Amino acid sequence: METNDSFLLSIAIPTYNRAKYLKENLEAILSQLESCKDIVEILVNDNASSDNTEQSILNLIEKYCFSIKYHRMTENIGYRANVIDVSLRAKGKYLFLLGDDDILSPDFFKIVIPYLENKNNLAVIHFNRLSGDAICSKNKLHDWEFDGLAKIMDYKEFWFRVMSSPNFMSSVIVRRDCFEKGVSFIKDDYYGYHWFSQICFGSIGEKCLYYYMPLVLMRNPSRTWSHDAALYFLVGMNSIFRDLDQYIPGIHDAWYYRGLKTHFYDFYGILSQVAIDASYYRQYESELMEAMPNRRTKVVLYCILHLRPARIVGGLYHKLLICYRLLFNHYTFTRKSVN
């Protein structure tokens, strides 16, 4: 692993046809970078965009007099390969894989840099977020279970506390040697979350930090991977916690508890996506069945894959859930601790 000692943090942004969002993203970074610009590098990997991404980058370089390391692919190599490529180009001690559409808080570096310089040599820094739609309306706090502003924990306590929340890429910074260590743990059935598995397994034996206050605004424009979202979450995430259980006993049971009890709407909302595109998901039926936490959910999955009335009900549930959240923008249950 090549490291440039002058860089404490590498902000690596994989992008594709998001020039408008990317510009706003980079403006939020560059406008507050003056005090730490010598220890931060910014890398943008353009996956052969057909919009004006390149010109937007050049304009920002000129405006802020900061050298953004822009790399344009000659052809689209896919999201996973683009993430791998940009992470390999990073040279800093810490790696921040940042989504091209998200926006950092105006005091991001003021808060984060001292933790990166912490004598505990933290492996992972995860922070809370606000989530909204593409135009930043109806923003809400992701984690409202306050138990202190910031806490340094060993990796076991940390993952029980945050569970899958760092699967939102823009909310987690990882020490780059830990990220590299995690490569050897990657498996094919970690669908869509190979980078997340690197963070999980790379943190084993290390100290991690959770920061409760939101430091990033998560926007939700259309996403190219949304077609596979149910596969990523139901199989990929489950497989990671299944294997992580070897190092953190009980974490897989906690994952099941989370899906069935404290995040009931989320679990069945994602499961209902299978009903909407059952013909596509039938090819993954055995893996989806294995990921189901109990007999009841296996029966539900079988029905929505093979019975048309169940698919109609599942699709209706999904639409009703979306309408409910748009109208009320909150859940009517209290999330419980997984400890």
Rank of each mutant, 00 (worst) to 15 (best):
C303A: 15
F96I: 05
E75G: 02
E285C: 07
Y256N: 15
E41N: 12
H194Q: 09
Y190D: 04
G259Y: 02
V162C: 01
G269E: 09
D266M: 13
S137L: 12
V112P: 00
P114D: 08
M289Y: 14
M237W: 01
L30C: 03
R161V: 01
F179P: 00
S279H: 12
K156T: 13
D107E: 10
Y64W: 08
L22Y: 00
L33E: 02
L130A: 03
I152N: 01
Y21H: 13
Y94K: 06
Y317P: 07
G202Q: 02
E157G: 10
Y268N: 07
S56L: 08
S6P: 06
I103R: 10
Y115M: 09
R161M: 01
K110I: 07
R296L: 10
E34G: 08
M289N: 11
R242T: 13
S50K: 13
L95Y: 07
I152D: 04
L95A: 08
H252K: 15
Y324P: 11
G192L: 07
R72F: 04
G205L: 06
L8W: 02
K93Q: 15
L271C: 09
Y284I: 13
M292N: 12
D38R: 15
T3M: 14
F185K: 06
H330V: 01
G92H: 10
H252L: 11
Y280P: 10
K336A: 09
R175F: 02
F333T: 11
I270F: 01
V235T: 11
S67P: 10
G182D: 00
I248K: 05
F146K: 05
T334R: 09
K138I: 00
L97P: 02
A134W: 12
I113M: 12
